[in-house]
Design a protein around this nucleic acid. Structure first.
Lengths: 335, 335
DNA sequence: GATATGGAGCAAAACGTTTTACTTAAAAGC
DNA sequence: GCTTTTAAGTAAAACGTTTTGCTCCATATC
């Protein structure tokens, strides 16, 4: 209950509170002998700095906010792990918010971040809440977009080229002999989904195919395994199975795979299947899943490093829009 | 940059700062007309409460700390999702720490939580850092153990009976005809691992088998898919394949499955396989995986509810040690 | 020997809330 | 018609840090 304060430490070490603060924040400013005396007092009393008081006075906290679309999706989990790792290395705490793709929930997360006066925000934007983000910036809270390229040059972002990803996936399906391809996706208002579609269409164009003839879009509400299975059931029920399916993420693909196999459709013999993200489980599925790999963990790490660099070196910081390239991973499901 | 404070709101609404605070925290204490005036001023100025100042003065924050062993494991992710959901419903923010099973890292997390003066801590304890937890309690920070039954009555905990789980798994393997069983596990210092072993041994005893003859322990350092695959390779290389494998979690089991299939071992024909946790991906694997299901999401929810009840109603709060029961899920890998 | 130059530490004023004790005015009690 | 109670709001003192001058003292400079 009794929290020991900097004053008590000061009293014990026979110095002023200011000196203790200096030991904590600019150790080089205080003489060797007093420093060790203070450090000993800190140890003896079990003092731990009051973060709230500190950030109240200093004007900023040592926390960052992380808002992700779906913490249940291994893709985002990997990103979060990268963020947590990089943040904790620098002594920052991570406040986690899960938006579940819900714009309201996302705004609530941002409000919480604002109340906590986080040093910065990392966000995989769900809706079009980019206006809210500008409000945060006005409040002096830096923002780095994760898995979403910034369209303006005055902000940092870290993303993976989804157009390339879609291109790789569909080019591969075409090369494997696909003629009629279904693109199973979440809402096309999600940038990732529409970019991957764009890439898919470019692949068709590059191969001289007519998108209208070759590609069918199947948009689901959610991007989880359940939706994937529903999509499979729908395709099967309507009796118009394509000969290849490109899913906008691996969760959809795993559900699709389950649904297809359940209906007696053989993969890859009857239908080729490729997912996106290359989550760990893609290679362990019933038929190991071809996919598009993204550097997820790095995504989180790099985003965090950019954010903290912007916070700690505001004047020397150069905004960057980092764009990673995805990679095609071929496994059984398209062989 | 310019953060608007309660004073400016007060000035605009023509009241004192104290009244604004009352509107924020005990709206019933202030007259209807002034209240709406203040609320309007808040809206117009875009005021958002300074969490640090608030918790400095109030003596407690609206955050909880969550320290998990492995955020990459869907089991913990589900727990975390439950925590986040319950916390955010009550207006609490979640500070996430990933201990990676590392005791040092866990202690660092607890230090961060202490600095942030979180209202309470939810923790899936990695090592034996229970002493550190008592230190937190002395500081007035409530602690709820997650996936770990408290051995004392003066604290809350939420867990799933792992002995029962181990019993269910091995009873099932025996009923399916297993004679020689390998238990592939993480370090037995992890309570979950040793409890599941205990349950396994009881199942053997109940079936009249000699544990020494029937059960072989294979302890790995980590509990991920990679370790599972290594365990498979080891069993295969040493030429002493059992006829059934019980893995202490699904990640190990998925790796084991991959390793076995890769070596040409058929599942379930040559080797029966059962995992633990019933993560989403267990049913989508090459051979769908039998497993022991735990109410993960609820685990997180209930833990959070207990914690916040303890925080908000300290006097009426009754400590509880909640123990859920696991459930056997039979799929192809043991059929 | 007088004067700059720094190093080391101190005192005190913030930071933005919450809360306690107090004032005022109006309603209630008799 | 006086006192008592209640309602509504205020002023000011915290909460535990960080930071900005400032003082003091020792060393270097001329």
């Amino acid at each position: 209950m009794s929290s020991v304060s900097i004053k008590e430490v000061a009293a014990r070490a026979g110095v002023s509170p200011g000196t203790v603060s200096n030991v904590l924040n600019r150790p080089e400013k205080v003489a060797e002998s007093t420093r060790s005396r203070v450090e000993e007092a800190i140890r003896e009393l079990g003092f731990v700095r009051h973060g709230s008081a500190s950030s109240l006075r200093a004007g900023h906290s040592r926390t960052v906010g992380l808002s992700v679309i779906d913490i249940g999706n291994p893709f985002f989990t990997d990103v979060a792990a990268g963020v947590e790792e990089a943040a904790s290395e620098r002594g920052y705490a991570v406040i986690l918010g899960n938006s579940s793709g819900d714009r309201l929930k996302e705004e609530r997360n941002l409000l919480v971040f604002a109340e906590q006066r986080v040093r910065g925000v990392l966000i995989t934007p769900a809706g079009g809440s980019l206006a809210k983000l500008d409000q945060l910036r006005e409040r002096g809270i830096n923002v780095v977009l994760v898995d979403h390229p910034a369209e303006r040059a005055d902000q940092c972002s870290v993303a993976v080229n989804d157009i390339t990803g879609g291109f790789l996936a569909v080019s591969h399906l075409l090369a494997a002999g696909a003629d009629r391809i279904a693109y199973v996706t979440g809402p096309l208002t999600i940038r990732q989904c529409s970019d991957r579609l764009t890439g898919a269409e470019r692949a068709l164009a590059a191969a001289g195919r007519d998108p209208g003839q070759t590609l069918e879009e199947v948009a689901m509400n959610a991007m989880n395994a359940r939706s994937g299975q529903q999509a499979a059931e729908k395709l099967v029920a309507e009796g118009r199975l394509p000969d290849a399916v490109f899913c906008a993420n691996d969760l959809l693909a795993l559900g699709m795979l389950r649904g297809l196999l359940h209906a007696g459709v053989r993969v890859p013999r009857d239908v080729l299947l490729i997912g996106y993200d290359d989550i760990d489980f893609a290679s362990a599925s019933a038929v190991s899943l071809s996919s598009i790999r993204q550097p997820t963990h790095r995504l989180g790490r790099v985003a965090t490093e950019l954010l903290l660099d912007e916070c700690d070196n505001p004047e020397s910081h150069a905004h960057q829009q980092v764009m990673f390239q995805p990679e095609l991973i071929v496994r059984e499901s398209t062989r």
